[in-house]
Design a protein around this nucleic acid. Structure first.
Lengths: 339, 339
DNA sequence: CTGAAAGCGCTTACAG
DNA sequence: CTGAAAGCGCTTACAG
């Protein structure tokens, strides 16, 4: 708790024998300063160990170099990958990340948006398309790029990058039917809007196939592998004829695999398993687990990319959205022999 | 990209018929303002929709409400839990989090520390005790609380909360020997300083037991379940007599379990498996996997707690550290029948 | 309990 | 290519 040299831009200007404005310019638009001046300034900065004061910069310019990221939860695996993509996308930009978690509460989200906006961020990344009307209005009025991630929707606030969870789940369900399973069920945890749309996709597929049973077990609890075990137990208690499960996510699918083994249910013959997201572990499992692959890393990186493009003045237009799609990765867990 | 009402503290003062200083005070020390004035101010704030400008506050006070968190990587499971703890600890504090990742590079860490420090953070949380001399000097000179997390060490820069990875791994290895395994090996990925100390703990245990073989397979690669599969394959190719593995972390342990099953190696009879951290999935696996439990959530929460105490002036002394310890959780994966 | 003065360290136009 | 002036919106002492 001691020394703070407190070297300011004026100190640098003095040492470099130029005015403060020129130092400021050398820092932000180096090519608008003569090479000689720049050399002296650079040397002074180095010798004095000058570091700009971001608060002063922000106050004067009405702009910070911070991107605000608002997600429901940091413990969700999916967001870890997204954060990695964001981090990657930020490399070399001089931008930083401030993180806020809504805990799935709309009012907390509104508060966070208000606080973040008050800091005049360089950009904002928010999860999903289900903001409250108040939150949406705040974001519409934001004077910085706003990117909605995770999914694509009909009316992005500004920019969006994600995928259709409805279509992804529908493809997963269709795969189960194509493999010869006749009584697929849906297992879901943490039923946020994306999960709801996955469930809707599952149901749409079953309806198309003329199946009118609705074997669905969901819980608002956070997802986990153990929960996958329990949900399978619940499911089998209520729908003993189930021969396949489409899981809301990969944790659940792994839990289902373990629970099946514990009960001597043979995968994929007696039970087919399909996850969602295609986490790295899915291919390593024994048997390897089928999943609907999503590209969370790209989602984060492209979200930052959109913001950087906008800041650089090279588009993209308001209303643009990037659909990253999904890929069904069939593996042994749904390779039914008698399909 | 439009409207910005730009309500300032002066606008509020005008509306509430007090001076700006009084509004400022009402915001930070409400009890130092008369109830009447406070009521008028609160109403004005509400009606005008005033939100303080953090940059102006920071510039004037030389202090922000941001805690800087510097970790090696966001994709590491372990840090997700820590972040959740940090997030939890922040509730109701009015503090925010800015995140920086070093990617295991000492110079990147130095740069991040410099940048974060320039923002005059309310506190700083950094991972580990192995900062470069430059980084250490910067942190020692910081005029805010600094907490080193993940492990406890001999000489904390300021505050520390973590555990001894050496002792944790030693306990894991001792457990394997106690269960009757005679040829335990060590599998490690992402060999950062904590992992190195785990390996040292493993070796110390084997040396104590008079075993002088050194069956160790490590890689600098990031950890993953698939990597666990590959490392087991490497290990068995080089030390076919191995009858147990202590894994650097739980991902690896899960990979080992899958690979063992693929090779028809029976767990725990032919191969004992022990992980590190005790991720939730360990208890759900089939068979359930033994692990050395660490409390990452508390680590994050307590790190924030230490900072908040210090800020509140009830502070823990410089040099304090909190050892959260570890617990060996024995499960079926090391329950050798013929032990 | 309340306020007048000064200043935090930058950047924004505007000239030249 | 360079600079003088003004100001961003708060808070810090210091009085009273």
């Amino acid at each position: 708790m001691n020394k703070t040299p407190k070297i300011t831009l004026s100190d640098v200007a003095l040492a470099a024998d130029v005015s403060p404005i020129t130092v400021s310019r050398a820092l932000r638009n180096p090519d608008k300063v003569s090479v000689e001046a720049r050399a002296r300034i650079d040397r002074a900065i180095h010798e004095l160990g000058y570091v700009p004061n971001p608060a002063a910069r922000a106050l004067a310019s009405g702009r910070t170099d911070i991107i605000g990221v608002i997600i429901p939860s940091v413990s969700n695996n999916v967001f870890a990958d997204v954060m990695r993509g964001i981090d990657e996308g930020l490399q070399g930009s001089g931008l930083g990340v401030q993180l806020g978690t809504t805990r799935y509460s709309p009012t907390t989200e509104e508060d966070l948006i208000r606080v973040f906006l008050s800091q005049r961020p360089a950009g904002l990344i928010v999860a999903g398309h289900d903001q409250s009307p108040v939150a949406r209005r705040l974001l519409e009025g934001a004077d910085c790029p706003v990117v909605q991630i995770m999914e694509v929707g009909p009316a992005p606030i500004d920019l969006a990058v994600g995928l259709s969870h409805f279509q992804g789940a529908r493809a997963g369900a269709a795969h189960l039917l194509a493999q010869g399973y006749r009584a697929p069920a849906f297992l879901g945890a943490q039923m946020d809007p994306r999960s709801q749309r996955r469930l809707a996709g599952f149901r749409a597929c079953l309806a198309d196939a003329g199946l009118d049973d609705d074997p669905v077990v969901t819980t608002p609890e956070p997802s986990s592998v153990s929960l996958g075990c329990r949900l399978l137990a619940d499911l089998l208690a209520r729908w003993p004829m189930t021969d396949a499960v489409l899981c809301n996510n990969d944790d659940l699918a792994l839990g289902v695999l373990f629970e099946a083994r514990r009960r001597n249910i043979r995968v994929p013959v007696q039970l087919g398993i399909c996850g969602f997201n295609d986490h790295e572990m899915m291919s390593a499992a024994e048997p390897p687990l089928t999943s609907v692959a999503t590209d969370r890393f790209s989602m984060g990186r492209q979200a930052v990319g959109l913001i950087r493009s906008r800041l650089a003045g090279v588009g993209p237009d308001r209303g643009s959205s990037v659909d990253l799609g999904f890929r069904l990765i069939p593996r042994a867990s749904t390779a039914r022999r008698d399909g």
